[in-house]
Amino acid sequence: MAESYFIKIQRYLLELDFDIQHQDAASNIFVVSKPDLGIEHLVLGCGEPLLILEQHLLDLPGSSVTVYQRLLQKNRDIIHGAFVLDDSGRKVIFRDTLQLEQLDRPELEAVFNSLALLLSEFSDELIAFSKTPSPQQP
Protein backbone atom coordinates (compact mmCIF):
# COMPACT_ATOMS: atom_id res chain seq x y z
CA MET A 1 0.00 0.00 0.00
CA ALA A 2 2.86 2.42 0.78
CA GLU A 3 4.10 2.17 -2.81
CA SER A 4 0.80 3.55 -4.11
CA TYR A 5 1.15 6.48 -1.69
CA PHE A 6 4.69 7.01 -2.95
CA ILE A 7 3.47 7.16 -6.56
CA LYS A 8 0.59 9.46 -5.59
CA ILE A 9 2.97 11.90 -3.84
CA GLN A 10 5.38 11.73 -6.78
CA ARG A 11 2.55 12.62 -9.17
CA TYR A 12 1.47 15.58 -6.99
CA LEU A 13 5.05 16.86 -6.80
CA LEU A 14 5.43 16.71 -10.57
CA GLU A 15 2.04 18.36 -11.14
CA LEU A 16 3.12 21.18 -8.79
CA ASP A 17 6.41 21.61 -10.73
CA PHE A 18 8.72 20.60 -7.91
CA ASP A 19 12.27 19.60 -8.72
CA ILE A 20 12.63 16.08 -7.32
CA GLN A 21 16.31 16.00 -6.37
CA HIS A 22 16.21 12.57 -4.80
CA GLN A 23 13.67 9.80 -4.49
CA ASP A 24 13.93 6.38 -2.95
CA ALA A 25 10.90 4.13 -3.33
CA ALA A 26 12.40 1.54 -0.96
CA SER A 27 12.61 4.15 1.84
CA ASN A 28 9.55 6.10 0.64
CA ILE A 29 11.55 9.35 0.69
CA PHE A 30 11.64 12.39 -1.57
CA VAL A 31 13.91 15.43 -1.41
CA VAL A 32 12.46 18.31 -3.40
CA SER A 33 13.03 21.97 -4.13
CA LYS A 34 11.09 24.84 -5.64
CA PRO A 35 13.36 27.89 -5.41
CA ASP A 36 10.69 30.39 -6.48
CA LEU A 37 8.83 29.47 -3.26
CA GLY A 38 12.03 29.49 -1.17
CA ILE A 39 11.74 25.73 -0.68
CA GLU A 40 15.10 23.97 -0.78
CA HIS A 41 15.80 20.35 0.12
CA LEU A 42 12.39 19.68 1.63
CA VAL A 43 12.28 16.05 2.76
CA LEU A 44 9.03 14.12 2.41
CA GLY A 45 8.72 10.73 4.05
CA CYS A 46 5.74 8.51 3.25
CA GLY A 47 5.60 6.52 6.48
CA GLU A 48 2.14 5.03 6.46
CA PRO A 49 -0.20 6.32 7.82
CA LEU A 50 1.57 9.72 7.68
CA LEU A 51 3.35 11.93 5.21
CA ILE A 52 6.06 13.79 7.12
CA LEU A 53 7.51 16.96 5.61
CA GLU A 54 10.65 18.60 6.99
CA GLN A 55 12.85 21.44 5.80
CA HIS A 56 15.93 22.55 7.71
CA LEU A 57 15.74 26.34 7.96
CA LEU A 58 18.73 27.45 10.02
CA ASP A 59 21.27 26.61 12.68
CA LEU A 60 21.15 28.60 15.89
CA PRO A 61 24.59 29.66 17.12
CA GLY A 62 23.46 29.48 20.74
CA SER A 63 20.43 29.07 22.89
CA SER A 64 18.39 32.17 23.49
CA VAL A 65 15.11 32.25 25.36
CA THR A 66 14.12 35.26 23.24
CA VAL A 67 14.65 33.35 19.97
CA TYR A 68 12.81 30.27 21.25
CA GLN A 69 9.97 32.44 22.50
CA ARG A 70 9.68 34.21 19.14
CA LEU A 71 9.66 30.89 17.25
CA LEU A 72 6.87 29.60 19.48
CA GLN A 73 4.90 32.81 19.02
CA LYS A 74 5.30 32.56 15.25
CA ASN A 75 4.03 28.95 15.36
CA ARG A 76 0.66 30.41 16.24
CA ASP A 77 0.54 32.25 12.89
CA ILE A 78 1.61 29.32 10.71
CA ILE A 79 -1.36 27.91 8.80
CA HIS A 80 0.16 24.44 8.24
CA GLY A 81 3.17 22.98 10.02
CA ALA A 82 5.33 24.39 12.77
CA PHE A 83 8.85 25.27 13.79
CA VAL A 84 10.58 22.44 15.63
CA LEU A 85 14.09 21.89 16.95
CA ASP A 86 16.20 18.81 16.34
CA ASP A 87 17.59 16.78 19.24
CA SER A 88 20.57 19.12 19.59
CA GLY A 89 18.30 22.14 20.02
CA ARG A 90 20.38 24.00 17.42
CA LYS A 91 18.65 23.22 14.12
CA VAL A 92 15.36 24.97 13.39
CA ILE A 93 13.18 22.84 11.10
CA PHE A 94 9.80 23.41 9.49
CA ARG A 95 7.74 20.24 10.01
CA ASP A 96 4.27 19.12 9.10
CA THR A 97 2.49 15.78 9.07
CA LEU A 98 -0.50 14.78 6.96
CA GLN A 99 -2.67 11.68 6.84
CA LEU A 100 -1.81 9.76 3.66
CA GLU A 101 -5.11 7.95 3.33
CA GLN A 102 -7.19 11.08 2.68
CA LEU A 103 -4.44 13.27 1.22
CA ASP A 104 -5.28 15.19 -1.93
CA ARG A 105 -3.24 17.60 -4.00
CA PRO A 106 -4.84 20.82 -2.64
CA GLU A 107 -4.01 19.79 0.93
CA LEU A 108 -0.38 19.09 0.03
CA GLU A 109 -0.19 22.32 -1.94
CA ALA A 110 -1.53 24.20 1.10
CA VAL A 111 1.46 22.99 3.13
CA PHE A 112 3.87 24.20 0.45
CA ASN A 113 2.09 27.56 0.29
CA SER A 114 2.18 27.87 4.06
CA LEU A 115 5.93 27.23 4.10
CA ALA A 116 6.49 29.69 1.23
CA LEU A 117 4.45 32.37 3.02
CA LEU A 118 6.31 31.75 6.25
CA LEU A 119 9.66 32.06 4.50
CA SER A 120 8.68 35.24 2.66
CA GLU A 121 7.22 36.99 5.73
CA PHE A 122 9.67 35.78 8.38
CA SER A 123 12.95 35.41 6.48
CA ASP A 124 14.61 38.56 7.84
CA GLU A 125 13.90 37.49 11.40
CA LEU A 126 15.11 33.93 10.71
CA ILE A 127 18.36 35.32 9.31
CA ALA A 128 18.76 37.47 12.40
CA PHE A 129 18.21 34.41 14.61
CA SER A 130 21.03 32.59 12.82
CA LYS A 131 23.35 35.44 13.84
CA THR A 132 22.17 35.76 17.44
CA PRO A 133 25.19 35.25 19.70
CA SER A 134 25.05 32.83 22.60
CA PRO A 135 24.28 34.46 25.93
CA GLN A 136 27.36 34.98 28.05
CA GLN A 137 27.84 32.47 30.82
CA PRO A 138 28.37 34.02 34.30
Rank of each mutant, 00 (worst) to 15 (best):
A2M: 10
A2P: 04
S4R: 10
S4G: 01
I7L: 10
K8S: 06
I9F: 02
I9T: 03
I9H: 01
Q10H: 12
Q10L: 08
R11C: 09
R11Q: 15
L13V: 06
L13H: 05
L16Y: 04
D19W: 13
D19A: 14
Q21S: 05
Q21W: 02
H22A: 07
H22F: 15
Q23P: 02
Q23R: 11
D24K: 08
D24P: 05
A25I: 15
A25K: 13
A26G: 08
N28C: 09
N28I: 02
F30W: 07
V31S: 01
V32Q: 02
V32I: 15
S33L: 11
K34M: 01
P35C: 03
P35V: 12
D36P: 04
L37D: 01
I39P: 00
H41A: 12
L44M: 05
G45E: 13
E48C: 02
E48I: 05
P49H: 13
L50F: 15
L50P: 00
L51M: 04
L51S: 03
L51H: 09
L51D: 03
I52E: 05
E54S: 11
E54G: 05
H56Q: 09
H56C: 02
L57T: 08
L57P: 04
L58N: 08
L58T: 15
D59Y: 11
L60H: 12
P61H: 05
G62K: 07
S63P: 03
S64I: 03
V65D: 09
V65W: 10
T66I: 10
T66Y: 08
V67D: 04
Q69D: 09
R70F: 05
R70T: 15
L71Q: 02
L72F: 12
N75P: 03
R76S: 10
R76Q: 12
R76A: 12
D77R: 11
I79H: 07
I79M: 07
A82I: 04
L85K: 10
D86R: 10
D86P: 05
D86Q: 09
D87N: 13
R90C: 07
V92W: 13
I93C: 01
I93E: 02
F94K: 00
F94I: 00
R95Y: 14
R95V: 03
R95G: 06
R95F: 11
D96Y: 07
T97H: 05
L98D: 01
L100E: 04
L100V: 12
Q102N: 08
Q102Y: 15
L103Q: 01
D104I: 06
D104V: 07
R105H: 07
P106E: 06
P106C: 04
E107Q: 15
L108T: 11
L108A: 03
E109K: 00
E109N: 00
A110C: 07
A110N: 12
V111P: 00
V111I: 03
F112V: 00
A116H: 04
L117M: 09
S123C: 03
D124K: 07
E125K: 04
E125L: 12
E125A: 05
S130Q: 07
S130E: 06
S130G: 09
P133D: 07
P133R: 11
S134F: 10
P135F: 13
Q136S: 12
Q137H: 13
P138M: 04
P138F: 14
